[in-house]
Write a protein that binds this DNA or RNA. Structure first.
Length: 661
DNA sequence: GCCTACTCACTTCC
DNA sequence: CGGAAGTGAGTAGG
């Protein structure tokens, strides 16, 4: 079940009013550059510091807008928003950091000093009512997780840039978790046996704190979580969830069985378990559960395939203890062992991971595999083509190309913007001498692993003409696929796209590749009856959604409006019908798990806009990737709402808008 | 309420 | 690159 934020203007009965809570204004996003109202453009449609420029030499949309004298010429418009230099301090991004820095001096005093407003209910910021804190649902769980990760990403961004007193925050995951816990950005605080509302089997996590804030597993480090209940024989302690992270030799030959080792016994990595484990705490709880046979949630920790060293956690559903015994460890200590069997009839979760592992190893091969690499080597990772549904052998012919192709006539004649960070391996966060970083309002757009820190009107990446090395971390969208992708036949939506690998929130997925066309060419295509199915058009209307952190949680000055209604610096229309990459297979959803972000960088002394896709939230393996196609502008300018080509939406989400164009 | 013990984390440093 | 040290935060119990 995919739930998103800010998807529809009228919430279904019984659901919370997200717009009130999140202060999201629906249907007012990505206002076109060539709006009918020239005044509106100059006053506030562009976020501070961003001006429009025109890649096709000037406004084309003469049918709806007259070029205004007020519109800047490309040269003016394309200058850095910071002008020559020192108005940096007046910039929003900068005042943010100042307050963050001053805040960090208070952090030094000690944590109860800083977060002494624990009793103050800050959770209204992200729309969590006291009732929802006790018992969540899918929507609340998503909100909490997205708030946590947004906060974590922002903290990492500040730490990377040494904006905070970095000696004080060594673990942004713990700090973000701590802020969420103390400020009420959490759910399912009431411990329970069995499933947790809003957390679904197969959900993935990248930090233990994520499982704490949604109430899946309350221990930030401990592997066994227990609940005290008043039983027939007085107070009893039951195990309610365990994390099997593989450190303790939990044998799991069968995907539905876990041999779980109790905790304690002088465990350390070198000489494991030299002393006997004691039958107390978690071990006692497991012992009780082995008699009562209550359901125990199992979370499996798996070494991340994409980023070695990192661990991914998969919620694998409910298990019951079938057997328990004591055995001697190699080091001589006595160990408690518990055999857990998965409750039958649950959707597969960990089993999917095991399948993927086998497909990668080559045996057994992926069922329904038509082509091992659709990209014919154009991507560094193979893109498989799979059909397990019917006999269709392949999508219509197209040429695989990894990026944009511009028409010969395309010319920007922009001044050079490449940074001159020579002598360095890569551009460094916090280095305001780097002109590329300055154009990003002083913030380095990405944190570790190519994760986008915040959505922005425009991300400025370093380009091939920058002096920094090609492995510069500010070139994320230019480095190709990082996850092993699969183009697959869906039941009812044609071909679709999904990943064999887990994808963490904010991770770069791919860009929208294809041929850049202008508006005239697009209407020509439509008139000729050519389908616009493979066209990406940034001038369509896209619904607003909240993805960035909430500044109040970091006590930063709130200078940017938090609604994230971004106008685009200039329009871009991409036709992927004949030329394209995996992005052309991504289907629409009203509750998407992927969003797009405009990215600009320079090649051959010209700056080009690209459309880059990032994960909206963590996406488990084999989940279809979808983004919001938005809606056609003509549907909103009155008149023919029954436009030809309107398609029934099959996204199946609870806040589905019903159709799209 | 404060303090401490306990724990299948996670990062950085060597 | 691998191992180990150091710093952690929630929960429970005193």
């Amino acid at each position: 079940m995919e739930e998103g934020l800010g998807q529809h203007s009228v919430p279904p009965p019984g659901s919370i009013d997200k717009y009130k809570i999140l202060d999201i204004k629906p249907i007012r996003s990505l206002i076109p550059v060539f709006s009918k109202n020239a005044q509106g453009q100059s006053s506030g449609q562009y976020p501070s510091g961003f001006s429009p420029f025109f890649p096709f030499g000037g406004p084309h949309d003469t049918s709806t807008a007259k070029p205004s004298r007020a519109m800047p010429t490309p040269l003016q418009a394309f200058r850095s928003p910071f002008g020559e230099n020192e108005d940096l301090n007046d910039n929003d991004g900068f005042s943010n950091k100042r307050s963050a820095a001053s805040q960090s001096t208070r952090v030094k005093l000690k944590k109860h000093k800083v977060y002494n407003d624990v009793h103050v209910d800050m959770s209204g910021l992200v729309g969590i009512s006291p009732g929802q804190r006790d018992n969540g649902n899918r929507e609340v769980v998503n909100t909490v997780l997205m708030s946590f990760d947004a906060l974590r990403r922002r903290l990492s961004q500040l730490v990377d840039a040494k904006e905070l007193n970095t000696g004080l925050i060594k673990r942004t995951d713990l700090k973000a978790g701590n802020i969420c816990m103390t400020k009420g950005i959490r759910t399912n605080t009431a411990k329970r046996v069995g499933s947790v509302p809003g957390v679904e089997i197969g959900d993935i996590f990248f930090f233990r704190m994520e499982m704490c804030v949604v109430g899946l597993h309350a221990q930030s480090m401990g592997g066994i979580d227990a609940l005290h209940i008043q039983g027939d024989r007085g107070e009893e302690t039951l195990a309610v969830s365990i994390v099997s992270s593989g450190e303790y030799d939990d044998e799991a030959e069968d995907g539905d069985v876990i041999i779980y080792t109790g905790q304690g016994g002088n465990f350390n990595k070198k000489d494991k378990h030299v002393s006997d484990q004691k039958l107390h705490k978690g071990n006692l709880a497991l012992d009780r559960s082995s008699r009562i046979h209550n359901e125990i949630r199992v979370i499996r920790g798996i070494k991340d395939a994409v980023t070695p060293g990192a661990k991914t956690y998969v919620y694998d559903g409910l298990y019951k203890i079938q057997d328990s015994w004591v055995e001697k460890a190699k080091g001589g200590g006595g160990l408690f062992k518990y055999k857990l069997i998965r409750v039958p009839g649950q959707p597969s979760a960990f089993a999917v991971w095991k399948s993927v592992q086998k497909w990668k190893a080559g045996f057994p091969a992926r069922t329904g595999l038509i082509l091992a690499d659709l990209s014919s080597g154009a991507e560094s990772l193979p893109v498989s083509l799979v059909n397990e549904i019917d006999n269709v052998k392949s999508p219509a012919f197209f040429t695989y190309f990894h990026s944009l192709r511009h028409p010969k006539s395309f010319s920007l004649m922009q001044p050079s913007h490449s940074c001159s960070c020579s002598g360095k391996k890569a551009c460094v966060p916090g280095d305001l001498d780097c002109s590329c970083i300055r154009r990003n309002e002083g913030d380095f757009p990405y944190i570790i692993n190519g994760v986008l820190a915040n959505r922005k009107p425009l991300v400025h990446e370093c380009g091939p003409t920058c002096q920094c090395f090609p492995n510069c971390k500010n070139r994320v969208s230019q480095t190709g696929l990082k996850h092993q992708m699969e183009v697959f036949k869906t039941k009812d939506k044609g071909w679709g796209l999904r990943s064999w690998d887990p994808i963490r929130a904010g991770a770069f997925i791919c860009e929208y590749a294809g041929e850049v066309i202008d508006k005239d060419r697009l209407s020509q295509l439509v008139q000729e009856g050519d389908t616009d199915e493979y066209v990406f058009d940034t001038t369509r209307i896209y619904e607003s959604f909240k993805w960035n952190y909430e500044p109040k949680l970091l006590e930063e000055a709130i200078t940017n409006e938090s609604s994230e209604d971004y106008a685009l610096p200039h329009p871009l229309i991409i036709n992927a019908k004949n030329v394209g990459n995996v992005a052309r297979f991504m289907n629409h959803s009203c509750s998407p798990n992927v969003f797009w972000q405009p990215v600009l960088y320079e090649e051959n002394n010209q700056s080009f806009l690209h459309v880059a896709f990032f994960a909206l939230r963590h996406i488990p393996p084999m989940h279809e990737l979808t983004y919001d196609y938005g809606s056609d502008r003509s549907d909103h300018t009155g008149g023919s709402s029954a436009r030809k080509g309107r398609k029934k939406c099959l996204c199946g989400s609870s806040n589905c808008r019903g159709s799209f164009t």
